[in-house]
Design a protein around this nucleic acid. Structure first.
Lengths: 207, 207
DNA sequence: CCTAAACTCTGTACGGTGTACAAACTTTGG
DNA sequence: CCAAAGTTTGTACACCGTACAGAGTTTAGG
């Protein structure tokens, strides 16, 4: 069989693990940072992955797994399965600035992504949806979850900063925004996340 | 009054317009590309905007405006207002690869963003929601819309590429995915976008 | 057994990014 | 008229992804 050269010092798994460590350290995933953590020259990474977006995909898949795929399985109520996993994924990603951007540079086609998809379809099946609606609903949920996390991340800043921005909104021109500013101040919180997800799930099963 | 030095050759508006032209040309917004289009050295941009993320914010705001703020106003049915604007925004952003990423690098606090927020609040008010729910609903809608566009963008690739990826899913391990592959093939289309938005709106006003 | 093919890893380098800093230049207020 | 304030530029730095040639290592085939 085919392995002729020297046996590889690393594996894709190790590369991805190193990338997660980079994320854990609060830095962005870069080929150089990952290589540095593996005591290897940057080019070596390209022996295991074709390009940066493949690395991003693989890391994103690992993050989906780290959120806890078990939460999506089992015989618990379909709604809890989805909500629990969504909240866990949110936590995993928000704890690691720069993790969310990985989901935008490449499609999600790893093993964990497929498992998430499969189990979402199962959950919506238990909720009474037909195949087509289950498929559409699964994608709608991933859309909401990843969108919410991305917005939370972009809208970050320090808490007083955000309050100051809201206070600076001219109440004359934007009365409704001014009136609801206290709510908007909590938009990036877990409560808003769960609320929106709940409404979406309500809509998805209401037909 | 304060303007002492030479009068500026440019304005923030012109800088943003140049950035849009860069996007229209299919390139990413970069300080150098924008400066080049204005026949100016890159550093000059920093006279008008503090840093890249401020440029990104300003360009994102312009894109929100380009989608057509009028669609969100008027006395048409609240649901049509929201759906029409959402679809228009999707078109504006998907026509310009690299436009979506601008929304992730900075919070949305420009004039157009505020207008969108104000009019969403108005629409949900007409739908019968209280202030707090209107606020939460507005954010949920922006979450879904921007999330959907971001995923569409990441999942891009050529059409046969996507079909090949779906066909490569092992049917034994992921039977539900395999069974619903034809639907998943259209996840990045406008129909799926509208469907998910409709379900979300259903849920938001169902209480 | 030995050579040649296949494979890993490195050194070097290129073009791209955001942006800091000092200097040159232009305008206006005191 | 001069000094302060503002604009623009030249140069430079650190980072990014990654192409390419070569060195070194292992195994398959003759």
């Amino acid at each position: 069989m085919g392995a002729r050269g020297p046996q590889p010092r690393l594996s894709v798994e190790q590369v991805v693990t190193a990338a997660i460590e980079v994320l854990d350290a609060g830095e962005q995933v870069s080929v150089r940072a990952v290589a540095g953590r593996l005591d290897v020259r940057p080019n070596t990474i390209y022996t295991y992955l074709p390009d940066k977006s493949a690395l991003d995909s693989a890391v994103a898949d690992r993050l989906l797994e780290m959120a806890g795929l078990d939460l999506l399985a089992g015989r618990r109520a379909w709604r809890r399965r989805i909500a629990d996993y969504a909240v866990a994924l949110r936590t995993v990603l928000l704890e690691r600035p720069g993790a969310i951007s990985l989901f935008h540079s490449a499609p999600m086609n790893g093993a964990a992504a497929l498992t998430v998809g499969e189990r979402l379809l199962d959950a919506f099946g238990h909720a009474g949806l037909c195949d087509e609606d289950s498929s559409r609903a699964s994608y709608a949920v991933m859309t909401y979850v990843l969108g919410a996390i991305a917005l939370s991340d972009a809208d970050a800043g320090t808490e007083p900063e955000r309050a100051a921005r809201l206070a600076a909104v001219p109440a004359a021109a934007f009365p409704r925004i001014a009136r609801t500013a206290p709510v908007a101040a909590t938009w990036n919180g877990e409560k808003q996340f769960r609320w929106g997800l709940d409404q979406l799930l309500d809509g998805l099963v209401s037909r």
